[in-house]
């Protein structure tokens, strides 16, 4: 049921990890709950108006793990004011996610946007 792109990202995920939330250059976002079966945590490290690194952790299905890996990859190198161009629809298309898994792409993008807001707030800029 999953595309090769999803399977590859589940079996060989990159950018898994976490940084201490207290770091001034790190923004953290979290979406979903354990009871719902999916929880996503995305962290971004910003510098000079760009995201220089992103990390994720996911408890969830293969689609959630693959989506988080893809969004973390897209985030790196992106200007802070360009992050909102990353949408759930783009994630669904890029990974050819089945319709019943589209909601996890939304959770991942929500977590990424929260991480962006957090890092911008820390940098003294309002979103």
């Amino acid at each position: 049921m999953y595309s090769a792109a999803v399977l590859e990202r589940v079996r060989n995920p990159r950018r898994v990890g976490e940084w201490p939330e207290g770091r001034e250059d790190v923004g953290t976002g979290q979406a979903g709950t354990l009871d719902e079966g999916t929880t996503v945590r995305i962290q971004v490290r910003g510098d000079a108006g760009r995201i220089v690194e992103a990390r994720f952790k996911v408890f969830g299905c293969s689609a959630a793990i693959a989506s988080a890996g893809l969004v973390a990859e897209w985030l790196e190198g992106t200007a802070l004011d360009e992050v909102r161009r990353i949408t759930p629809e783009r994630v669904v298309d890029a990974l050819a996610l089945p319709a019943e898994r589209a909601h996890v792409a939304r959770l991942v993008v929500d977590a990424a946007r929260q991480a962006l807001d957090d890092v911008m707030e820390k940098a003294g800029r309002r979103p």
Partner: peptide
């Protein structure tokens, strides 16, 4: 503990087992 069932089944490529998780419906 600590993991989600569907991603476990998808990850297990070298054994054929079944799970409480049916991949299509979860």
């Amino acid at each position: 503990e600590g993991i989600e069932g569907e991603s476990l089944l998808v990850g297990l490529t070298e054994i054929a087992v079944s799970s409480g998780a049916a991949c299509t419906s979860a």
